[in-house]
Write a protein that binds this DNA or RNA. Sequence first.
DNA 1: TACATTGTCAACCTAATGGTTGAATATTGA
DNA 2: TCAATATTCAACCATTAGGTTGACAATGTA
Lengths: 124, 124
Amino acid sequence: MIANIGKGVSQNQRSAHLDAVFAALADPTRRAIIESLGHGEARVTELAKPFAMSLNAVSKHIRVLETSGLVRRRKSGRDHFLSINPRSLDDVETWIVVVRRFWNQRLDAMERLVQQLEKEERKR
Amino acid sequence: MIANIGKGVSQNQRSAHLDAVFAALADPTRRAIIESLGHGEARVTELAKPFAMSLNAVSKHIRVLETSGLVRRRKSGRDHFLSINPRSLDDVETWIVVVRRFWNQRLDAMERLVQQLEKEERKR
DNA sequence: TACATTGTCAACCTAATGGTTGAATATTGA
DNA sequence: TCAATATTCAACCATTAGGTTGACAATGTA
């Protein structure tokens, strides 16, 4: 049911999680990191290399990705290996797909209505 | 190509658009408005009704949705009718689907590697 | 041991976000 | 014409976000 996706009022956990994931994806640096991790796990320094910003800044971005659940961290000695969390995009994708389906139903209904009206128009 | 989705550096238009849409969707009030518009177009006051915040606050949220391209506005007298822009989720969905496919390719490759190693293990 | 490397933590700055209230504008209806 | 309605604009405020720099802690290496 569309009503369960997010009530606006009374912030449930799922909604809070969507907040975090959408917000994490709203930054181009973080999206680039996510894409980069498609090549496999990587250390902080490696991930930071392409960007024209301090290592600390990238470290913060990674933290945001981590707390949103999009990436996971595995420590080995002084190295932190980051990797994608393959299931982390499920909720966002579900939200989008459901909303779009809902929209399309409405648009289809409007389309049918228009055709109906045209048909009646032709009768006259 | 995954490399074209967003280079991190040199912010192209598509990336800026994704920034705006993801950021717009990161707020539960705005997601609720989006869902609400699945029922058809609505005026600002109608959209604002369910929320425990001022009309002005909702007006601002609508503006954010509008500038991100997620909703459209049609003025008729003093009423502003908002409606969804059905194509507005295409880019986000594409991004997610492509990234996920990319991830899965890698995960499949890892899976094959594991099976390969197990096979060789059994030979010994 | 000494030194370099990896990464975080802490403090700071600026700009953006999400909310408020109060006023202004435009339109409708009596 | 006058009052009500619909909406935005403007100023303000508190919090968050994204970046910086400078320490710090832990680990690896000569």
